[in-house]
């Protein structure tokens, strides 16, 4: 009896010990994977930062890796000058932020309409929203180009050429067809469907109209979705070059387009013809462009990750 009991406790000890060892190795593996993948993601960025702060001698020094010997910010000042950084970035941020606000208003309104009203053809129309998500804008770029090249409001007004202005993007966004609007409508719809109906009923009993209920009650409650959509919309609008190229929007408004020609501008105006050194300037330019959007993301990150969990992005 006594012997048996001893074996039992030993067995338990052994199991606990083995369990601890396995757990240790599993944790080690997890950490290794996370660190490894994170490195894959940030290594090009480290490379860019290093390249942009290295001086010209450092680039030709085969001993230099990660830490430049004579770091300088000279590349940044010229890149900022040639990008006309402050002004262009200001215009781009104004463009991006106003479009994001329009997206938020329009998409949340449409999403609410689909979530809380039972009108005829609702399912058919919502299928159209899904179609909008699925069909890439590339399929219809040609007619879109032509629509805005001769914008005549279906013959109501003499045709206007809207190319090289930002108007087409604003018009499309205001009509719920901007950059990935379908997805935002879908997110809002899912979120509003998840909110309890009692809130609206209470508002109705207290005499609130549908618009008052939507603006003052539902939209305020939809904060998680609003944050999710804000982050996505800001990022995708800022990075969008498809519509910018399609509507020939000026480089002075869309800074992501301007970076494409930075190397050529530097070669032309500053007579820097060495490709490796041009590259340094381009890298500096990219870091400058990414700065504001990364900062906005970091500001919203906590709410964003928590928001994504509660917002309609999940089925």
């Amino acid at each position: 009896m006594k012997v048996k009991r001893e074996i039992f406790t030993n067995e338990l000890d052994r199991k606990v010990f083995l369990g601890q060892v396995t757990e240790f190795f599993v944790t080690l593996l997890k950490v290794a994977i996370l660190v490894g993948v994170s490195y894959v993601i940030i290594s090009p960025i480290i490379g860019m930062i290093v390249s942009s702060i290295a001086s010209t001698e450092d680039i030709y020094n085969p001993m230099m890796f990660i830490l430049p010997e004579n770091p300088s910010l000279e590349k940044y000042s010229l890149a900022a000058l040639r990008l006309d950084y402050v002004k262009t970035m200001g215009r781009d941020l104004l463009y991006t932020i106003t479009l994001t606000i329009i997206q938020l208003l329009v998409c949340s309104m449409v999403g609410y309409g689909f979530a809380r009203f039972n009108f005829r053809f609702k399912n058919l129309l919502f299928a159209c929203v899904v179609i909008m998500i699925v069909i890439p804008p590339h399929t219809i770029m040609l007619p879109l180009y032509m629509t805005f090249k001769n914008f005549d409001l279906f013959g109501l007004i003499p045709s206007i050429n809207m190319m090289s202005t930002v108007k087409p993007v604003y018009i499309m966004t205001a009509l719920g067809c901007g950059v990935r609007s379908g997805l935002y409508i879908y997110i809002f719809n899912q979120f509003f469907r998840g909110l309890p109906k009692e809130i609206e009923e209470a508002a109705f009993v207290d005499g609130a109209g549908v618009w008052y209920t939507y603006f003052r009650i539902m939209l305020v409650n939809a904060m998680p979705s609003v944050i999710t959509v804000t982050v996505f919309s800001l990022v995708w609008q800022f990075n969008d070059v498809f519509y910018a190229n399609l509507f020939l929007i000026s480089e002075d408004v869309v800074i992501s387009k301007k970076i494409g020609s930075l190397a050529a501008v530097i070669a032309n105006q500053d007579k820097i013809l060495n490709v490796k050194i041009q590259e340094q300037y381009v890298n500096a330019g990219i870091i400058l462009i990414l700065l504001p959007i990364v900062m906005i993301y970091l500001l919203l990150q906590k709410q964003f990750m928590e928001g994504a969990e509660r917002s309609g992005i999940v089925g």
Partner: peptide, 18 residues
């Protein structure tokens, strides 16, 4: 019926653009 008002902007955009 007011639901149509909410989805109106999108509906116009969808017909015109898509």
């Amino acid at each position: 019926r007011k639901g149509y008002l909410f989805i109106l902007p999108w509906l116009v955009g969808f017909i015109v653009f898509y």
